[in-house]
């Protein structure tokens, strides 16, 4: 029973953190049209920086090396991780958003991800290289060490509350004039510029906000597991987040939730129970990626807007009398633009 409870808790935490990743990506891609192909790098940035701020100074005799080791209290370290992730978003934005669009921007983000992955993996003085960081201080530490199951459920509530805040934030942003500007930029950036809005600034905002949110998810991940190594944030993980957004429905945060439930939780978790083939240990994880890929193809083929499509905006309004309900003078009734004689 306790095992099942623990497992359910882990599933819920996975669900909540993936929600946060997908909402972050949704703000970048769904709102502002920024193709960020390295979502997972921002997650890693948040997680690693949380770790090195919260952990005590590295004990070199144990052959574990990492920078800083400031031993800050966990809420402050959490903030540091989030800021680090946002700062990376700002840097990528500075390089890429000023001049590049769509595919070229995507290439820059992909390159950034590869760079960071290579750097963090190969340099074992930064974040302990390929072996990664472990024994990372968790919040609610005393509970965590003595009652792991209770910790899991406390963490479910903790991550759930944070997810709720992110969700409310994202929805308010969507409905606001700023969110509308972002969506207009997604449609046609030059036109937004020519109407007096600094589209670079708005896109940068979307980029940084998205990075911050993904960073929050990253911090939560490492807080829950207590460890992270580069194997946990390969490029493939980025596409799980993408798949969740595309299947669920972009530009709609409800779609983000449905998508992370379908892809990140159900598909990712269900495939764990396929029995391993002893001679091919990588078969199942690879098969999982194949299945997720197939799901994306199917959803783009049959339901390109996703399971929950973007909602059409509606406004409270005072109805007007339609001046031209009868069509235009000289035009047939109902025919908006029928070729007819000129106005009388």
């Amino acid at each position: 029973m306790t095992l099942i409870l623990g497992y359910v808790a882990t599933l819920l935490v996975t669900f909540f953190t993936y929600n946060i990743f997908v909402i972050g990506l949704n703000i970048q891609f769904g709102y502002a049209g920024i193709l960020n192909f390295t979502v997972i790098t921002f997650m890693a940035f948040g997680a690693y920086f949380y770790a090195v701020f919260v952990m005590p100074h590295a004990d070199n005799s144990s052959q574990v090396f990492y920078i800083l080791g400031l031993h800050w209290p966990w809420p402050l370290a959490m903030l540091a991780g989030i800021v680090a992730s946002g700062a990376l978003g700002y840097l990528v934005g500075l390089i890429a958003l000023k001049r590049l669009r769509s595919d070229y921007l995507a290439i820059v983000t992909l390159a950034t991800g590869t760079l960071v992955y290579g750097l963090f993996g190969n340099n074992n003085k930064l974040f302990d290289g390929w072996s990664g960081l472990f024994n990372v201080n968790q919040p609610f530490q005393s509970v965590a060490t003595n009652h792991p199951n209770e910790f899991s459920w406390i963490f479910v509530v903790f991550s759930g509350v944070i997810m709720l805040v992110v969700w409310l934030f994202a929805n308010r942003l969507y409905a606001s004039p700023l969110g509308r500007s972002m969506r207009a930029i997604r449609e046609d950036q030059d036109v937004v510029d020519s109407f007096g809005k600094n589209s670079f600034k708005v896109r940068m905002l979307a980029m940084v906000i998205g990075s911050v949110i993904v960073g929050i998810g990253g911090v939560l991940t490492i807080q829950y597991i207590g460890a992270l190594s580069p194997a946990g944030w390969t490029t493939g993980e980025t596409f799980v987040v993408w798949a969740a957004l595309l299947v669920g429905g972009r530009a709609n945060n409800l779609g983000a939730i449905v998508g992370s439930l379908l892809v990140a939780v159900i598909f990712n978790e269900a495939t764990r129970y396929i029995p391993q083939v002893p001679s091919h240990p990588n078969l199942i994880p690879n098969l999982r990626n194949v299945i997720i890929g197939g799901l994306v193809i199917l959803s783009i083929w049959f339901r390109p807007q996703g399971v929950v499509p973007e909602k059409k905006a509606s406004f409270l309004e005072v109805p007007l009398v339609d001046k031209y309900a009868q069509g235009f003078p000289g035009e047939e009734p109902g025919g908006t633009l029928s070729p007819a004689a000129s106005e009388a």
Binding site: R180, R183, A184, E187, D188, D190, E310, A313, F315
Partner: peptide, 11 residues
């Protein structure tokens, strides 16, 4: 160059 996936009013 309308904003295609915004409603006319939102445009």
């Amino acid at each position: 160059r309308e904003f295609a996936n915004l409603t006319v009013l939102e445009n």
